[in-house]
């Protein structure tokens, strides 16, 4: 606890100093004047929560902010609670939110009124990959074999796909595979990615589309095997993960004969009506975070796609992603009436 007290004291001294310097200069460059709340629209322990707390740790360790950053989970209604909170906090620059795909899926699936452009986009941090996993004991080793076995499965015992949540990213990919192949899965929703991976090891489901970090340990232990990655190109990580393979050796689904791409946004937003200076401050802050060795190591361990966008490119990406989600969700029949 000493750490935090000491740093709080240092920060208040620093804040006083900053205030003293800033006073005559006016609002030249904006800096937070009090604790910044970092909203996570998901529960504790999930992927978004991990990333948020990781960022909090990096900022604290490297002293990247003059004020403290506190992580707050608002997971109600598949994250709707968190997004609505930010949407309703116009003109409050001391609040940021990390998003996952539920930014696009929740309003469509539940009809709760919020959209990505209700908030101020700050910066994309990374994109999370999805990999098609099967049990290591499965008789097929590639997508072709998987699809053939799926087509040959009897109608009363179709393949079971385990995934996180309902009408969210995992089920969207499942629906996309169904549309491409014309065969149905039974989609079984679980609470978290770790549960899904364990259920796949235990043979309770046939396949999953876990994020790399959720299933990597089971892969290394020879209990699961990856078939393909839902990205347009292979992952850039060449370090061996198992004795024979690295992340880069997993073929893309497209080259393996299943033309589907899906990436999950890990990005930062601010409440509406944030000024240019305020957005700039956070853009710079996250730029510094991304340059730390801790962040780079985290990206590699989790085999993230490290694309990072800001400004108009980010906005354009969001617009495109929102449209894609709308089409995918409509085709799958996931949109609330």
């Amino acid at each position: 606890m000493k750490l935090s007290i000491a740093s709080a004291f240092r920060k208040s001294v620093a804040a006083a100093a900053v205030a003293a310097v800033m006073a005559p200069l006016g609002a030249l460059a904006w800096e937070p004047t009090k604790t910044v709340e970092f909203i996570v629209p998901a529960g504790t322990g999930g992927g978004a929560d991990q990333m948020a707390r990781m960022i909090q740790g990096i900022i604290q360790k490297n002293n990247l902010m003059n004020q403290s950053l506190v992580v707050i989970n608002k997971s109600g209604g598949a994250g709707a609670e968190g997004f609505l909170d930010v949407k309703g906090s116009a003109n409050n620059p001391h609040k940021i939110i990390i998003s996952l795909s539920n930014l696009f899926t929740t309003p469509l699936a539940t009809g709760v009124p919020f959209k990505w452009d209700d908030m101020t986009p700050v910066s994309m941090l990374a994109l999370d990959e999805f990999v098609l996993w099967v049990n290591a004991k499965a008789p097929y080793d590639d997508v072709k074999g998987f699809l053939a076995a799926m087509a040959a499965a009897p109608a009363d015992a179709p393949f079971k796909m385990g995934g996180t949540g309902s009408k969210q990213e995992d089920q969207i990919i499942t629906a996309a595979i169904e549309q491409k192949t014309g065969k149905k899965f039974i989609y079984v929703p679980y609470k978290g990615g770790g549960d899904v991976a364990a259920q796949l090891v235990g043979g309770h489901v046939t396949a999953s589309v876990n994020n790399p970090i959720e299933a990597v340990s089971q892969w290394r232990a020879g209990e699961l095997k990856p078939l393909c990655v839902f990205d347009e190109q292979r992952l850039p990580y060449k370090e061996p993960v198992t004795a024979k393979m690295s992340w880069g050796d997993i073929p893309t689904c497209k080259e393996a004969g299943l033309d589907i791409e899906y990436l999950m946004l890990r990005g930062i937003f601010m409440p509406p009506k944030a000024t240019k200076e305020q957005v700039e401050y956070f853009v710079n802050l996250f730029k510094k975070v991304r340059e730390t060795p801790e962040w780079k190591e985290f990206m590699q361990k989790g085999a993230f796609n490290t694309t990072a966008l800001t400004g108009p490119e980010y906005t354009a990406w969001l617009g495109k992603a929102a449209a894609t989600h709308k089409t995918l969700m409509e085709n799958a029949g996931f949109v609330a009436k």
Partner: peptide, 22 residues
């Protein structure tokens, strides 16, 4: 197994990943 047996274990699990352990 990498599956949390309780909410607290879920957070500890996140901790392992942050510290670079799988």
């Amino acid at each position: 197994l990498g599956i949390p047996g309780s909410p607290t274990a879920a957070v500890l699990l996140g901790g392992l990943l942050i510290w670079g352990l799988q």
